[in-house]
Nucleic acid binder design. Structure first.
Lengths: 329, 329
DNA sequence: TTGAAAGCGTTACCAA
DNA sequence: TTGGTAACGCTTTCAA
């Protein structure tokens, strides 16, 4: 690979002037500029990012920390971030933590060692000192932290909407599925729904999901109908859980949405391909990724921030696992 | 962040000896080693990867090029690779090409500028000069290239299995969905199935899918039943398409698998949550990612390779969108 | 067994 | 408007 020296040699100038044309700063005569550009073209020169990073003490890499890219919600977040970052010349180093502290710390460590320009973190441990040190800017993604830059959606509102729609459809014996205790986002949507249900004229019960994994979702769905066979409405903790519940309901011969309504959360792409297509509360994952990337970009450029905590709106996607208003039995 | 100089200062030795203990090479007295280790601990020192990379002209970063992480098949590939690379201290820089040449070249370029140690590429353009230059080792993932290291699964066998199972279930009017023309993997599974169908006592027709996107899949499913209402078996190009077909079949009031059998391809995690759970041909995506990472690791270490083209086995996952042997109408 | 110093490819300061 | 050179943090000769 050609270096700046080669270019300087070929153009008959010093590396300093090559650097100047490269970065478009300082004075450089028009003639020598073209000479240099020609040489660069001829040698197919591209600057070594590693050398740049070393000098600048900052690379054009962004660390993206995710619980698990295998969960369909996160790839969208990642894509949103990537597409945004891309345009400014930043790339992503990705790390899946599996929600394990050790893995997370390990990734954080290597992010630092690679002099990342910033970090996008969907973490369960926002209070880690690693996130408050001023090594690099951090934006929390799908998570909040008091006073820290973050992008998330309105979980309480989402939970409320789900419960309201469930009631509107006329369910009288609702099972509310509570997501993993350690996930604040899961708790928020849960408590939003709980509030509504508690003040409503409907019977309801709560079940707890151990995780968002497929296996746990399937197990939960079975338990749910075993424990509460009279359930005629399920507010699931996310779309995966909802799919599992839908699956189990159909397996038991129930008609959806006539016998039982089901509402998911997230609106992952696959949800519309379920049958019946899943009614769900949509989080704008791709846009959240974009917003977070944007915020981070501003921080990296040390531009003043107007807002530091960006809350994205949540919307109800009415498909066919819920009934119409006038569809009550 | 503490540097090697700080450590040297604190330990009262030269940076050279710190480097020696760091890399565990060359002679260093036991006493001075402990002195140095103590200093490192005290200063919470971790070597700057960027500086290392610059000197070594190789970073501990691996470029991972994917069509689209949003397609559920790829996150698994990525996780497999990540988990394997992780153990040897390598991290992933990720790039989604959307199958666009320009984006791909752009990522390849920046991978090089970041001096990646190697590249894992799920590319449609394996013949690009970028892949044959000897800048960095490359392993093709889910793709083949004559004589080049690659990890893929046996598409023809997969297609055959799908067709055989379809026939075994007794379908007589089969629609075979052909995936995008530009995807060799899609063509292979297609031609495998085609071979079987052509030599069988069954009527069949072919439909072409423009892409693997959800929207196209949904549109295709509608067209399929409009064009071939008598279809009693669909061999889909992948699980997304199969989900769409299943969806449409149920919407039309068909019984699955009694009226129509459906077979997918890939076995993405969500497929078992469909109802009825999808019968499909499984590609071991996670393992493929692992194998590819492993192969690449060997190449990076310049270890001799026994095999360079690794073909992974494909298996039929019998769930409930296909009939039993004796289940014929 | 240790240290001095060159070099990896840039950028930026200071002189010219 | 240009060039020389120190510096970024590390590794690796080469000498001592």
């Amino acid at each position: 690979m050609a270096t700046i020296k080669d270019v300087a040699g070929a153009a008959g100038v010093s590396v300093a002037t090559v650097s100047r044309v490269l970065n478009d700063n300082g004075y450089v005569h028009e003639d020598t500029r073209t000479k240099v550009m020609l040489a660069m073209k001829k040698l197919n020169y591209y600057p070594n990012e590693v050398a740049r990073s070393l000098y600048k003490r900052e690379s054009r890499l962004i660390g993206l920390l995710l619980p698990d890219i295998t969960n369909p919600f996160f790839p969208q977040l990642a894509r949103g971030a990537e597409d945004e970052l891309q345009r400014e010349g930043y790339r992503l180093i990705i790390g899946n933590s599996d929600e394990e502290l050790e893995k997370e710390l390990d990734y954080l460590q290597t992010f630092k060692q690679n002099q990342v320009a910033g970090i996008l973190a969907a973490t369960n441990y926002p209070d880690l000192p690693e996130y408050s040190g001023s090594f690099y800017p951090v934006v929390f993604l799908d998570r909040t932290k008091e006073g820290a830059p973050s992008v998330f959606s309105d979980g309480r509102a989402g939970g409320k909407i789900a419960a309201e729609e469930m009631l509107r459809g006329g369910s009288k014996c609702i099972t509310l599925v509570k997501g993993p205790d350690h996930l604040p986002t899961a708790q928020e949507r849960f408590s939003g729904a709980l509030d509504v249900l508690q003040n409503a004229d409907a019977q309801f019960q709560v079940m707890s999901a151990a995780s968002f994994s497929l296996n746990d979702a399937a197990a939960l769905a079975e338990e749910l109908f075993a424990a509460y066979p009279e359930t005629d409405g399920v507010i699931a903790s996310n779309d995966i859980a909802a799919a599992a519940v839908l699956h189990e309901a159909l397996r038991l011969g129930k008609k959806v949405p006539q016998d039982i309504q089901i509402i998911g959360y997230d609106d992952i792409p696959q949800s519309r391909l379920l049958f019946p297509p899943l009614s769900t509360v949509r989080q704008p994952a791709y846009e959240m990724g974009k917003e977070a990337a944007n915020l981070l970009l501003h921080m990296i450029k040390k531009e003043p921030l107007t807002e530091t905590a960006i809350q994205m709106p949540v919307t109800f996607i009415k498909r066919q696992t819920t009934r119409k208003d006038d569809d009550h039995e």
